[in-house]
Write a protein that binds this DNA or RNA. Sequence first.
DNA 1: ACATTAAGTGATT
DNA 2: AATCACTTAATGT
Length: 213
Amino acid sequence: MANFYDDLMTHFGYFFEEELIKEINASGIQKSISKNETIIDIGDYIKFMPLLLKGAIKILREDENGDELVLYYLEKGDTCAMTLSCCLGQTKSKIRAVTETDVELIMIPKEKMGEWFGKYKSWQSFILQSYHSRMDELLEALDTIAFLKMDERLFKYLKDKAMVTNDDTIITTHKEIADDLHTSRVVISRLLKKLENESKIILFRSSIKILEL
DNA sequence: ACATTAAGTGATT
DNA sequence: AATCACTTAATGT
C-alpha cells in the first residue's frame, strides 16, 4: 500500500494544514522519474500539477529553430508556476520541463487545484507564493541574459547546477552547456579554460569541478 | 586498430 | 561572441 503521507509532512507539513495534507495524500499520485526525462513539453496540455519531493527540474524555453535556453530550476518543495496558469487558463505549456536529477513528485489532478484554492488558506498562499518566487526567478534569468556577459552567465550557470545537484562536480559536456546557454561549444570551451586559469574550476573530460562556491 | 565523441586552437567576421 | 576548419586526446567497439 503506497502512501506518501510522511514525505508530504516532511516537505510541506510546515506549510499545509493537516486536512489538506490528507486530501493531497488521497488524490495525488506519486511518481518517480529518472534523470533527463522530459516531463512536460512545449505544446502539451497539462492535466496534473506536480509537487516536487526530491530532485531538481530544469525549466527551458525553446525558440523557432529548436534552440533551447534554461530559465530556472525547480527544487524540492517547489511547484511549477506554468502548470498553474495552464490549468487555470486551459492553455498549452509554453515551456519544457526536464528532470535534472532523479526526481520524486506528486501529481495533483488539476480539478483539485481550484477546489482547494477556495477551501484552504494555506493552499492559496502556497500558490500565490510560488507565483511570486517563480516571477522573481524569471526576472533574475532575464537580468542574467540582458546584463551579464557570457563568462559571468557561464559561472552562474555552473554554480546553479552545482546547487541543485548538491555536488561540486558537474557531469556534463561543453556542448550541453552551450545548448543550455544558447551559445556555441567553442565559446564555452574558451570561457571554461579562462575560469580554470583563474582557479575557479578544474576541467576534466565530461565533467567540471567547481572550486569557488 | 579504427571510429566516434569531447575538447583545444588559430583565424576570420 | 559566432563560425569555420582543423588538431589532439579520450573512449568505445
